[in-house]
């Protein structure tokens, strides 16, 4: 049942990308029925009433699917609860008197815009470099023309469940984006529709990923932080495909 608790917040404030940031302390009373972001909403309302600028923090759907929200809570991306986005976290995870440290996602490729808001646009650039199946509108054949084994469709879905929140990068000691990139690659490579461009797509997306992000050293922190529990095996899958792609792309272009 619900109770009222008081939490001590230590929140990162930073006026802009070029400004230096600092921690500010706040105390907030809250019912355990509230969500974590509703707790911040209340704090912001109080700050606004006192004439102090509210804390910038992003969220949108508040049901764990859009990938907009995401902060480090006590050092963990999206906080302590497994398979949960920041917006789905509820205050019943915390106890009276707890200290909660809230920081933006930490990664060099995700520069801070303001307070807890970061720029994750490199993800879009990875998709732009090949995260699609090239089929113009109107060019598709009947959907049941190509049967897809249920197992393949299920695996494709498991990979496609990624919400692009960036927790994997924030949790990684190297700020690597292997989990994000491999999820998109595995989604498409699991399906017959994804085969024609499979090798080119793999090279392009991995190449773009490496322009922005660090290297993977198999810590597995990304999977631990992932709100959709994207499987680490997809990274192995991507690495295997990348190696094959190096050979196949040469062969496909006639250079054996």
């Amino acid at each position: 049942m619900s109770e009222i608790i008081t939490v001590n917040l230590k929140i990162w404030r930073q006026e802009g990308p070029e400004k230096s940031g600092y921690f500010e302390n706040y105390t907030q009373k809250i019912t355990t029925e509230a969500s974590f972001l509703e707790m911040i909403d209340l704090l912001n309302e109080d700050l606004n009433n006192q004439g102090l600028e509210p804390i910038s923090i992003e969220s949108d759907c508040r049901e764990g699917i859009c990938g907009t929200c995401g902060v480090m809570i006590n050092g963990q991306a999206h906080g302590p609860r497994k398979a949960t986005t920041t917006c789905q976290l509820h205050m019943r995870e915390f106890s009276d008197g707890d200290e909660i440290v809230i920081e933006p996602f930490r990664a060099i490729s995700f520069p801070v815009i303001r307070d807890l808001v970061v720029d994750r646009s490199p993800f879009d650039q990875i998709i732009e470099s090949g995260g699609y199946i090239s089929v113009n509108t109107g060019a598709a054949s009947d959907a049941n023309l190509i049967p897809v084994p249920k197992e393949a469709a299920d695996q494709a879905f498991d990979a496609a469940a990624c919400i692009g929140c960036g927790a994997c990068v924030a949790a990684c000691p190297n700020s690597a984006a292997q989990l994000f990139t491999s999820a998109k690659l595995a989604h498409m490579a699991s399906l017959p529709q994804g085969q024609p461009e499979r090798w080119k797509r793999t090279e392009m997306m991995v190449g773009t990923m490496e322009e922005f992000f660090g290297s993977c050293t198999n810590h597995g922190e990304c999977h631990e932080a992932c709100p959709k529990e994207i499987n680490l095996d997809f990274i192995a899958f991507m690495n295997r495909d990348y190696m094959k792609a190096k050979v196949k792309n040469r062969a496909l272009s006639g250079q054996r």
Binding site: Y132, A140, P147, V148, P149, K150, A153, A156, A160, Q193
Partner: peptide, 15 residues
């Protein structure tokens, strides 16, 4: 169109 784009719709065991 969506199937051709790789949208992983639910499937039966026959595919």
């Amino acid at each position: 169109q969506a199937t051709a784009q790789g949208v992983p719709f639910a499937r039966e065991y026959g595919g």
